Amino acid sequence: MSIKEAMKQYFSLRKTVADEGLDFLFKTPFDEEVDSLIYVGEVDGDEYISWRPVEKKVTNDFSLLEEKLGIKIHGSIVEYFNSYWFADLDGFIKDHYIKLESVLPKADIESYSNLLSGYKSNHNNKIENIPIGIEGNGLIVVVDNQDGSVKLEDYERNSFEVISEGIEQLILTLRLKK
């Protein structure tokens, strides 16, 4: 199964759960810099707006970013960023709350570039793992740049725990309720 198919399945499940009363699953803080492509309806009194995932028709080119960082980014990361526009992709796996990077129709690759540059400088100017999200207790969700496995990185302890063999398996495994 591709990452795009896994995301389609995930967003379908998210819609089902939202329709059961957890409508906040498709609400996000309004950001005027985001192209209105994913927004649905009007901004509410709390400055939130409904959103929907939209299949991407454009492909982000990672070659300049790879050149800047001096690495080849694992194909699963490129596929992840080129599948859908969306505000949230999160859930539970084991005892962990995982929130993956959103892909918003604005300068998403530019902001991701800044994240990767910061990660690289905090890791002796090496990128063996690529950040793709955050865990509820502050661990970093990373993709092994060699084999594509997904791991939780504890930066303070310099330790890693593999939580999935790849991004698509992670997305398919996420639960929306604890």
Results as ranks from 00 to 15, higher is better:
159 S>R: 14
161 E>M: 09
80 Y>S: 01
173 T>Y: 00
32 E>I: 08
160 F>S: 00
158 N>L: 07
20 E>H: 12
148 G>E: 10
41 G>L: 05
150 V>I: 11
8 K>G: 13
176 L>E: 02
161 E>H: 01
130 I>N: 08
123 H>P: 04
152 L>T: 02
112 Y>F: 14
141 V>P: 00
52 R>P: 00
124 N>A: 10
104 L>R: 15
145 N>K: 03
131 P>I: 01
158 N>K: 10
61 D>R: 03
116 L>H: 02
10 Y>A: 10
74 H>K: 07
112 Y>Q: 08
171 I>K: 06
55 E>S: 06
12 S>M: 08
12 S>T: 10
6 A>Y: 01
176 L>S: 02
30 F>S: 13
62 F>T: 12
30 F>H: 15
25 L>H: 00
3 I>V: 11
70 G>A: 01
168 E>Y: 13
94 K>I: 00
1 M>I: 04
125 N>K: 13
9 Q>Y: 15
163 I>H: 08
24 F>L: 14
121 S>Q: 11
155 Y>W: 04
105 P>T: 07
10 Y>Q: 12
150 V>D: 02
27 K>T: 10
40 V>K: 13
126 K>M: 09
118 G>C: 06
163 I>M: 06
142 V>D: 00
83 S>R: 04
9 Q>N: 15
169 Q>L: 02
8 K>H: 12
127 I>R: 12
116 L>P: 04
88 D>G: 00
81 F>V: 03
129 N>T: 13
110 E>Y: 14
172 L>P: 07
53 P>G: 05
137 N>G: 14
57 K>D: 02
22 L>D: 04
139 L>H: 00
50 S>M: 05
133 G>D: 04
94 K>A: 14
117 S>M: 08
100 L>N: 03
113 S>W: 08
117 S>R: 09
31 D>M: 09
71 I>E: 04
122 N>Y: 15
158 N>V: 00
13 L>N: 08
53 P>K: 02
101 E>Q: 12
8 K>T: 14
169 Q>N: 14
2 S>W: 03
41 G>S: 03
154 D>V: 09
71 I>F: 04
148 G>K: 01
166 G>S: 09
16 T>A: 11
151 K>M: 10
140 I>Y: 05
